[in-house]
């Protein structure tokens, strides 16, 4: 599980081009949107594609993303439970 969380942090930084952020800067329960990392709706779309491509999870309702992308911890829990690859 902790390996998955580190992997997710690295992917978020790379995928969303967070130039000044390091893996160590993101705490497991930091908010990804709003006051936390400050991600926005375009980032949410990028993360939805990442879930599909890397973990085989297809979100039928993009609104689900709001809960799933709350933090790295919540994302990792969701991926652990639903991943198909």
């Amino acid at each position: 599980m902790s390996e998955l969380k580190e992997e997710l942090k690295a992917k978020i930084i790379e995928q969303l081009n967070l130039e000044d952020v390091a893996v160590a800067d993101i705490a497991d329960d930091d908010a990804l949107f709003g006051d936390g990392l400050g991600l926005d709706s375009i980032d949410a779309l990028e993360l939805i594609v990442m879930l599909d491509k890397d973990y085989g999870i297809r979100l039928s309702d993009p609104k689900e993303g709001r809960k799933i992308f709350e933090s790295v911890q919540v994302m990792a829990d969701y991926i652990q439970e639903h991943r198909t690859k």
């Binding site: 995928q15 375009i42 779309l45 990028e46 594609v49 599909d52 491509k53």
Partner: peptide
Amino acid sequence: DNNEQYLTPTSFI
């Protein structure tokens, strides 16, 4: 590369 799947919005925009 992704066989027309998994297209992300940023580079397109």
